[in-house]
Design a protein around this nucleic acid. Sequence first.
DNA 1: CAAAATTCCTGACTGC
DNA 2: TGCAGTCAGGAATTTT
Length: 300
Amino acid sequence: MPELPEIETIRQDLSRDIVNKKIKLVAVSNGRSVRRHKSAKEFRDRAEGRTIKSVGRLGKYIVCTLDNGDNLVMHLGAHGQFFRTKSAKEAKLKHTHVVITFTQGGELRFVDTVSFGEMFISSPPPVDQPVVVRSTAAFALGGEGDLTRKSVPELAHLGFDPMEDQMSWERFAVALRTRSDSIKTLLLDQQFVAGVGALYADEILYSAGLHFDRTPESLSTTEVRRLFRALVEILAEAIKQRGSSLADGVYVDFTGKSGNYQNFHEVYEREGEACRRCRKPILKVKAVSQDTFFCDRCQI
DNA sequence: CAAAATTCCTGACTGC
DNA sequence: TGCAGTCAGGAATTTT
């Protein structure tokens, strides 16, 4: 369940920790975690001996640029976790599928109970075959996300990233008008906006004072602005708080510490508790094939 | 024809 | 104890 704020927290920590470290060994114990490759050996061969030059992010993907120009791309899926360990001796958690050992010592372990997550090595496209961006990101060219998208073809389909791309509320309004789905469906659609999942979608809609079922055509200009502002501000605040850790224990950073943003949730996992704005109990319904938490008085 | 709905992958957990 | 059902992110496939 990690979403953009949790992934960004991990990216920041990794960036401080593994940049300029050299990958000595890669051990894959579950081939499903590297399923885009023909074999685990191919993944290992392309990673071993490489030095990590930078750690970026697009949506829920972490992108490590290597010294040969390739990118090591990592996605946590629904239950994936990273753990940084000082030595190989530390006990291995169940479902540890990939272990990266650095020349300078220490390991980065990828633990993923259901193996919905993945890791793969991607090469930038040849100059005569540039990536064509067809998603909503085409409305937000010029940012950091644009560079990532163009060097990792596998991520070109992702919509704009609210933190990495140069989107404005006016261009967001244009992108919105191309779609007829409900606004919650759109927030969850990675090809519309990259990085938002069920938790932040509900928090964003509460903050914007909008009901999950509203459609883009029904939104006034003021409401579109409120939605865009909530999208950017909720994610930014959640990053400041190092993401949300729920009772399920799925999200912790790679040292095992929880985030703080769960203490600021207005609706998510607050069914029956009083809305902090109007005191009416928060509701939970099935919508967009998922649980949706909202206040039916404050969100119209 | 596109958009919407369903399926698939896997393991943890819930309820009977 | 066991067994059916549910859930999760995203891609692929099927149905509408």
